[in-house]
Simulated scan of single mutants.
Amino acid sequence: MSASEPARIRPGAEPEGPVLYAEDGWSWAWILAAPLFCTAAGLFEWLTDAPVHWLMLTICAIASALCHGVMIAATRVHGRVRLTPTAYYQGTEELDLAHVQQVLPPAGGGPDEASWQTARTLGELREVPRRRGAVGLRLDTGAEVRAWCRRPAALRAALVDAIGAADASPGPA
């Protein structure tokens, strides 16, 4: 990689410097859910003197664990949020905070919808996932985008602090 090329962060790799806000996707512990339930079902069958279906329970446990593994890996890439003093990472997309002009106020909840609520969503997903909240950002180009996470109020506060700190820092002379 030449010195003129920007550094690219591989999905899942931690950015350099302090992290001001972070969220990950699902925990890898969820991969154990199906095998535990299948084991409990087998024990229940054994304790009640019913025929134990070990082969089918094992196949179901393995298949469910594999399906969960795919979903967990996807959420850990696409649902990942990192905010550093210089950049915001949503999934595999990186937004330089120098390009963020303003953190937009939250939607009022009235009939008038804030313009940023229909703006492009950062990251690879087309819409904000369920049980997630959005934070509107206005870029230096005038475009509005939506950052999203589980705790939008905390992300909004961290973004306001990071953008204020970036504005207060002296520019290149």
Rank of each mutant, 00 (worst) to 15 (best):
M1V: 12
S4A: 14
P6G: 11
R8L: 14
I9D: 02
R10C: 05
A13Y: 01
A13K: 13
P15L: 10
P15K: 09
V19L: 11
V19P: 02
E23C: 07
E23P: 05
D24N: 14
D24I: 12
D24P: 01
G25Q: 07
W26T: 05
S27R: 11
A29C: 07
I31R: 11
L32E: 03
L32P: 03
L32G: 15
A33E: 07
A33C: 13
A33Q: 11
A34G: 06
P35L: 10
L36G: 15
F37Q: 11
C38P: 04
T39I: 13
T39W: 06
A40L: 14
A41K: 03
A41C: 12
G42I: 06
G42N: 05
E45N: 04
L47M: 10
L47A: 13
D49A: 14
V52S: 03
W54C: 03
T58I: 06
T58N: 01
I59A: 14
I59L: 15
I62T: 12
S64Y: 00
S64L: 12
C67A: 15
H68K: 01
G69S: 15
V70Q: 06
V70M: 10
M71H: 08
I72Y: 09
A74P: 00
T75A: 06
T75Y: 02
T75W: 02
R76D: 11
V77M: 11
V77R: 15
H78N: 12
R82L: 13
T84C: 08
T84A: 10
T84G: 07
Y88F: 15
Y89C: 10
G91W: 03
T92F: 01
E94W: 05
L95E: 07
L95N: 08
D96A: 09
D96T: 05
L97Q: 03
H99C: 02
Q101P: 00
Q102A: 14
V103N: 01
V103E: 00
V103C: 01
L104T: 09
L104S: 03
P105L: 04
G108Y: 00
G109C: 08
G109I: 12
G109Q: 09
G110P: 03
D112G: 00
E113L: 08
E113F: 00
A114Q: 06
Q117R: 15
Q117K: 15
T118L: 05
T118V: 08
T121M: 01
L122Y: 07
G123F: 06
E127H: 10
E127Q: 10
V128G: 08
P129M: 08
R130C: 02
R132H: 14
R132G: 00
G133S: 02
G133K: 02
G133I: 05
A134Y: 04
A134R: 14
V135K: 03
V135Q: 04
G136Q: 07
R138Q: 14
D140G: 02
D140I: 10
D140E: 10
T141H: 01
A143I: 04
E144R: 07
R151L: 05
A154D: 13
A154T: 06
L155W: 03
L159W: 01
D161W: 00
A162I: 09
G164C: 09
G164H: 05
G164M: 08
D167Q: 14
D167G: 07
A168D: 15
P170S: 13
P170G: 08
P170K: 13
P170C: 03
G171K: 12
G171S: 11
P172Y: 01
P172E: 12
A173G: 15
